[in-house]
Deep mutational scan, measured.
Amino acid sequence: KLCLVCSDEASGCHYGVLTCGSCKVFFKRAVEGQHNYLCAGRNDCIIDKIRRKNCPACRYRKCLQAGMNLEARKTK
């Protein structure tokens, strides 16, 4: 099974979405830290295992598009 954000090996369902541990922690920190990420490109950066750290804005956008939600952990 692959992470729906970066296509690395998924470690489980986190915040409602099948993700790897790295994307799970990234999403939690992004939401709780209330980061205002900005993409230096055109908001279409490739997010994969190798390049997932290059653009936090696009990675966060991809987390949201996949359906990640901090509240999902509280309902399970």
Rank of each mutant, 00 (worst) to 15 (best):
29 R>F: 05
41 G>E: 09
18 L>H: 11
8 D>S: 10
43 N>R: 09
38 L>G: 08
9 E>Q: 11
27 F>W: 08
48 D>A: 03
29 R>W: 07
45 C>S: 01
23 C>R: 08
40 A>Q: 13
75 T>K: 13
50 I>C: 07
28 K>A: 08
64 L>Q: 14
8 D>C: 06
62 K>N: 10
45 C>I: 00
44 D>P: 03
69 N>V: 09
31 V>S: 14
26 F>L: 02
49 K>Y: 07
69 N>Y: 06
32 E>K: 13
49 K>G: 13
4 L>W: 08
6 C>S: 00
53 K>A: 13
7 S>K: 14
53 K>W: 07
21 G>M: 10
13 C>I: 15
53 K>H: 10
34 Q>P: 06
46 I>E: 12
61 R>W: 07
31 V>C: 11
8 D>G: 06
42 R>H: 11
34 Q>V: 07
11 S>L: 14
70 L>I: 11
2 L>C: 08
65 Q>Y: 07
54 N>T: 12
8 D>P: 01
29 R>Q: 07
6 C>H: 02
51 R>N: 10
3 C>V: 00
34 Q>C: 10
21 G>K: 13
44 D>Y: 03
75 T>R: 11
59 R>Q: 04
57 A>F: 03
61 R>K: 11
50 I>H: 05
73 R>L: 09
38 L>A: 13
73 R>C: 11
44 D>N: 07
41 G>F: 09
13 C>V: 13
21 G>H: 06
70 L>P: 08
12 G>H: 06
36 N>V: 06
6 C>W: 00
10 A>G: 06
56 P>E: 13
53 K>E: 15
60 Y>A: 03
46 I>Y: 14
76 K>T: 15
69 N>W: 08
15 Y>G: 06
60 Y>E: 03
29 R>M: 06
33 G>P: 04
33 G>A: 08
36 N>A: 11
60 Y>D: 00
7 S>A: 15
24 K>I: 04
5 V>K: 00
52 R>A: 09
59 R>V: 01
71 E>L: 06
17 V>K: 11
37 Y>Q: 05
24 K>D: 12
13 C>E: 14
12 G>D: 12
15 Y>K: 05
19 T>L: 05
58 C>W: 00
37 Y>E: 06
54 N>M: 08
30 A>R: 03
75 T>Y: 09
66 A>D: 03
53 K>G: 14
70 L>C: 10
51 R>K: 11
33 G>C: 05
53 K>V: 10
38 L>D: 15
48 D>K: 03
16 G>E: 04
47 I>Q: 05
3 C>P: 01
41 G>Q: 09
58 C>M: 00
25 V>A: 14
67 G>D: 03
57 A>H: 04
49 K>W: 06
16 G>W: 01
42 R>Q: 15
69 N>P: 04
34 Q>T: 08
68 M>K: 02
31 V>F: 12
50 I>L: 14
36 N>G: 08
59 R>S: 01
19 T>R: 00
62 K>F: 05
12 G>F: 07
1 K>F: 14
46 I>N: 12
40 A>T: 08
2 L>R: 14
6 C>Y: 02
56 P>H: 06
31 V>A: 10
7 S>H: 14
31 V>H: 15
58 C>Y: 03
38 L>K: 14
47 I>H: 04
40 A>V: 13
2 L>W: 08
44 D>M: 12
24 K>T: 06
28 K>F: 07
68 M>E: 03
22 S>D: 15
59 R>P: 01
35 H>N: 15
31 V>Q: 11
39 C>F: 02
1 K>W: 04
24 K>F: 07
54 N>D: 11
13 C>A: 11
1 K>M: 14
66 A>E: 10
25 V>H: 15
16 G>H: 04
17 V>E: 03
8 D>M: 04
37 Y>G: 07
41 G>K: 13
24 K>R: 06
67 G>C: 03
62 K>H: 08
2 L>H: 12
28 K>E: 13
34 Q>M: 13
29 R>T: 10
75 T>W: 15
17 V>S: 05
51 R>T: 11
42 R>I: 08
37 Y>L: 12
8 D>H: 04
54 N>I: 13
53 K>C: 04
47 I>D: 07
60 Y>T: 03
30 A>C: 08
10 A>S: 07
58 C>G: 01
35 H>G: 14
68 M>H: 02
72 A>P: 07
24 K>H: 10
25 V>I: 14
65 Q>E: 08
47 I>N: 05
73 R>E: 11
9 E>M: 14
43 N>P: 02
7 S>N: 06
20 C>Q: 00
51 R>Q: 12
3 C>F: 01
11 S>W: 04
7 S>E: 13
4 L>S: 10
57 A>K: 08
18 L>T: 10
27 F>L: 03
54 N>Y: 13
69 N>L: 06
44 D>E: 14
63 C>Y: 01
54 N>Q: 12
76 K>V: 12
72 A>N: 10
15 Y>Q: 07
61 R>E: 14
6 C>G: 00
4 L>D: 14
57 A>T: 02
37 Y>D: 05
52 R>F: 06
18 L>F: 12
72 A>L: 11
57 A>D: 05
33 G>K: 14
48 D>I: 02
2 L>I: 15
3 C>N: 02
5 V>C: 01
2 L>A: 15
44 D>G: 05
25 V>E: 15
30 A>K: 05
73 R>D: 06
